[in-house]
Design a protein around this nucleic acid. Structure first.
Length: 489
DNA sequence: CGGATTTGACCGGCGC
DNA sequence: GCGCCGGTCAAATCCG
């Protein structure tokens, strides 16, 4: 009685993991059973000689189990005792011949099973790929549903952004000479816009695409088409998000806006049609953060500072920045929602304006003109009378939700615009929604601006989830830019 | 001395 | 193809 494991031979012959057990116990005492492998007749195969002196280690139980799992096969080759078979009146030559024939047959069978093993692995791999693809698709759909919910809550709009339409149907009503100067509520040269949504975050398509591609062969054609459609829509959506911009106009003497992020100035240029230079800043809070902002004074009214944010942070944002991200997120959600088919869509006194900025007359102008969909928050008009009582004594904007430093309120402004989202998981639960006015009153900042912003954020928070929490004092500005001499009036 | 700012050069897109 | 323009780069400079 002997129990052989053939995995060693298998390795030797094929280099593939799988084993053949040769055991004789079951057939003990009965007619010697020479082969139980499939329907192959080992002994009718070629008589090629092989070295039968392999030392054959036994498979461990775990190895056998793995084999069974990996291949879906449990192969057992039962042969009768070598001795009882081979000693049965055979000459040594015949014994060796018979043994060699067995080995040859086993090698053939091993090859066949190896092939089957490969096929099974391929199937498993394809199934995994298809599962991954579907899983990712489900996640995307859920994210989109969440976005729709938010839009519905905040803007009474339930439709998903028809991003493709926006991308493929730029405005036909460009104004003022038309060329590159797109229609904008901001002065001719104040194309300051702010991107709110993630540039890369969570929407990586590389791996997903590979999986999809791999799984295509597996999916029914209709499912495949759906998946492809969804993928295309996502890509279009991503492209739009990358280009969508929001600009904020505010009246202030401040030369810069601090927003809880660290910025490094990397350029300044005179822009056509505006005597005030435009400054370019890059976020330095994290290496490789793609967020940029532009700061420029309005040509018509140099007390108006236009700040532009572009890109999405690749790092967690300070609470203040995230709060603003929520607000502007809603703005861009609005921007990207609804059938803004062609020309610029002015939203003055619109749903957006009323919803986002209910206590002010702030105008929110949304433009879907080419090349980028743009939203402009004009916070320069009709300041909140309550806030107007507060004298302007600071040189920087301040964030409503962050208490100012006890002594140096003007030199250490709190953050204001977080703008770009960190991924899509903005959860502004750390921001107050009930005492913004008090907070705003307590800080030294441009009252007009902060009032409008406070109203906007408050409105958004309440509409969004109603979460209430205490003021987080972590919003202290880390702005490191010095006065950039942007044509202040 | 290291980091931030300044500023002229450079590049790519677009219109003519 | 050329020029204009916006945006970015990078060396020089500034500043704490």
């Amino acid at each position: 009685m002997q129990s052989y494991s053939m995995d060693h031979m298998n390795h030797c012959f094929t280099g593939v993991d799988f084993s053949v057990n040769l055991c004789s116990g079951e057939n003990e005492g009965s007619e010697p059973k020479r082969r139980v492998i499939g329907e192959m007749d080992f002994f009718s195969e070629d008589k090629k000689r092989v070295n039968s002196d392999h030392k054959v280690p036994s498979l461990s139980a775990t190895q056998k189990e793995d084999l069974a799992i990996n291949t879906g096969l449990q192969l057992t080759v039962n042969v009768s005792s070598e001795q009882s078979t081979l000693d049965d009146g055979l000459s040594p030559d015949e014994e060796e011949k018979e043994r060699n024939m067995e080995m040859t047959a086993m090698r053939i069978e091993i090859g066949r099973l190896n092939e089957e093993n490969k096929n099974l692995r391929n199937m498993l791999s394809q199934a995994s790929g298809a599962y991954e693809a579907l899983h990712m698709h489900l996640i995307r759909l859920m994210q989109q549903r969440d976005l729709n919910k938010r839009n519905s809550l905040n803007h009474n709009i339930s439709t998903v952004a028809d991003v493709t339409e926006m991308v493929e149907e730029p405005s036909q009503s460009s104004t003022e000479g038309g060329s590159r100067e797109r229609s904008s509520p901001t002065p001719a040269n104040s194309k300051n816009e702010m991107v709110l949504f993630d540039r890369e975050g969570g929407r990586g398509i590389g791996k997903e695409e590979i999986i999809d591609r791999e799984s295509n062969a597996w999916l029914p054609s209709r499912e495949h088409a759906k998946l492809q459609q969804s993928k295309d829509a996502d890509q279009a959506h991503e492209a739009t998000m990358r280009k969508a911009r929001v600009s904020v106009r505010a009246r202030s003497d401040a030369s810069i806006i601090t927003d809880g992020c660290q910025w490094r100035k990397y350029g300044q240029k005179m822009a056509k049609g505006n005597p005030c230079p435009r400054a370019y800043y890059r976020c330095t809070m994290a290496a490789g953060c793609p967020v940029r902002k532009q700061v420029q004074r309005c040509a018509d009214d140099r007390t108006i500072l236009v700040t532009t944010y572009e890109g999405s942070h690749n790092h967690p944002l300070p609470p203040a920045a995230m709060a603003m991200a929520s607000t502007t997120s809603a703005a861009v959600s609005m921007l990207l929602s609804g059938p803004m088919s062609s020309s610029d869509t002015l939203m003055n006194s619109s749903v957006f304006a009323r919803t986002m900025l209910p206590s002010t007359s702030t105008m929110a102008t949304i433009s879907a003109s080419a090349p980028f969909p743009t939203i402009t928050l004009d916070l320069t008009q009709n300041p909140n009378p309550i806030q107007q009582q507060k004298p302007l004594n600071g040189s920087h904007f301040s964030l409503p939700f962050s208490p100012p430093p006890p002594t140096t309120t003007t030199t250490t402004p709190t953050a204001l615009f977080g703008h770009a989202l960190y991924g899509h998981s903005v959860k502004p639960e750390n921001f107050p929604v009930t005492s913004l006015a008090d907070t705003v009153s307590a800080i030294t900042a441009d009252p007009n601006f902060t009032a409008a912003l406070a109203a906007a954020i408050s409105s958004f928070m309440e509409n969004n989830n109603g979460n209430k929490s205490s003021v987080n004092g972590n919003g202290r500005s880390h702005h490191t830019c010095s006065d950039n001499k942007i044509g202040s009036s």
